[in-house]
């Protein structure tokens, strides 16, 4: 990892050293530094306090800080590991690490399970699945009759609920994803491999040599 000696003072609450974050994620130190540039941009877009608020995530995703959405809320909640209403830099990097092309598939499957376990019961339940289907239909202005929605939910649920106990557990979810790998397509962001190109401003000032 090399010898790290920071000359910079990071006063941002929740800031963690790139060397520490790189050791715990698929990112290199340079990539973590580049992510800090992105983090600074996002965390100052509405409230300039070095923390990402929900409105700032909504602004980044929708170009509208007031647009609420079930899935954006879930993404925010999963990134906000400490559940204190904001995303800190360390939380941001560790969560994005799951989206890295080199992150373990197991982590991606686990993340999607938690994403869809809306009420955090440890299971994806039929009502949650229907709620998410209705949310995507509403979001996309797509009209489907309730009968069609029920049929889609029933079919999917019976395919995934191998034990037939009315809920999808993590093991069943893993099996279902293995049969339908496109379900974790959103969990890989190719951009993360090029993050140092997207946010290169740090390169001239970086103080750490990557070990890779």
């Amino acid at each position: 990892m090399g010898c790290y000696h920071s000359k910079r003072t990071k006063e941002t609450p929740g800031y963690e050293e790139p060397t520490v974050l790189a050791a715990e994620t698929p990112f290199t130190v340079s990539e973590v530094e580049a992510l800090y540039e992105l983090f600074k941009k996002l965390s100052s877009s509405v409230i300039d306090d070095g923390l990402i608020h929900k409105e700032e995530l909504q602004l980044a995703l929708f170009r509208n800080k007031n647009r609420r959405n079930l899935f954006a809320d879930r993404i925010f909640d999963l990134f906000d590991v400490k559940r204190n209403g904001v995303i800190e830099f360390g939380e941001f990097v560790r969560s994005l690490g799951v989206f890295h092309p080199n992150a373990p598939v197991e982590d991606k499957i686990h993340f999607t399970f938690r994403l869809y376990d809306l009420r955090q019961t440890g299971f994806i339940e039929r009502e949650e699945l229907k709620e998410m289907v209705l949310a995507i239909l509403h979001e996309s202005d797509l009209l489907l009759s309730d009968d069609v929605v029920e049929t889609i939910v029933d079919k999917t649920f019976s395919d995934a609920d191998l034990k037939g106990d009315g809920k999808i557990d993590p093991e069943e979810w893993k099996e279902f994803v293995s049969k339908n790998p496109s379900l974790i397509k959103n969990m890989t962001l190719p951009y993360l491999k090029d993050i140092t190109l997207a946010f290169p401003s740090f390169v001239l000032s970086t103080e750490v040599e990557d070990s890779e």
Partner: peptide
């Protein structure tokens, strides 16, 4: 077991949500 080729998987439908595509975070 028989399959229903014309029926979209509910999770595939959910995955179409733009909110689940975080690439928007990287747009300048």
């Amino acid at each position: 077991s028989p399959k229903s080729p014309n029926l979209i998987n509910a999770f595939q439908l959910i995955g179409m949500s733009s909110c689940l595509d975080l690439s928007g975070l990287f747009e300048k």
